[in-house]
Write a protein that binds this DNA or RNA. Structure first.
Lengths: 111, 111
DNA sequence: CAAATATACCTTGACAGGCGAGGTATGTTG
DNA sequence: CAACATACCTCGCCTGTCAAGGTATATTTG
């Protein structure tokens, strides 16, 4: 483990929504892309991932449908909704201000 | 409420240690300084604060002693230990890399 | 062809941290 | 003396993470 997951906690939904902003995708692939983007330093645990999908779908941020693969295991694809796009933008703004706040709070003042 | 507390979760310990890097202090005052630094946008809930003190003391990051106030309510002062200083530095480094990682993961790629 | 591996999904139950609600005690101020 | 500010504390709930376990399909390998 390279990164304490409590630091990422609260960003799971944002991360998933961000991946879906680029187009429909399915769970396994989304997680792969997260691993790739972080050079293997981070991944969502499956239980966390699927819990998040349920939560986001319940909240109306995403919708899902089964793919009609002719081969390989079946895939459930997720699609971001308009409401999900709004939520995403909101979460991004919250992250920007939270980031500044944390920076301010965790640094010792010495000028 | 202005900031989702899940975004701060995982930083509580770092925030407290940062405050103690500047010298011994007590709970109530630490929380006040956090409110001031964030222009009232954030504060640690008392239950969260005292839970964190217990946790940090248990972990050997801080030690405590009762102040000998002649007036007003009694205060329990906290002091950061050498181990606490090490932990603080480590947490800062973790935050730096987590920050980059999150930035990478929550932005949609469009160049 | 059987076994192993990769893909792909899912659920359950435990755990940890945040926090609402409630409590204690002291000193000041109207 | 009542109200308020300071200052501490605990209990029990809630939510998100995740280890462990499970299912099903297709491909590779001996």
């Amino acid at each position: 483990m390279s990164i304490a997951s409590d630091l990422i906690r609260g960003h799971t939904d944002t991360i998933i929504l961000a991946r879906l902003m680029g187009g429909d995708n399915y769970g396994y692939e989304i997680n792969k892309s997260i691993q790739q983007k972080t050079d293997g330093k981070y991944e969502l645990k499956e239980a966390t991932l699927y819990t998040a999908f349920r939560r986001l779908e319940q909240a109306g941020c995403i919708s899902s449908y089964w793919g009609n693969e002719r081969t390989g295991a079946r895939r459930r694809y997720y699609s971001i909704t308009d409401s999900g796009r709004d939520t995403y933008e909101k979460l991004i703004r919250e992250w920007q201000s939270a980031k500044e706040m944390i920076n301010k709070l965790i640094e010792t003042e010495e000028d």
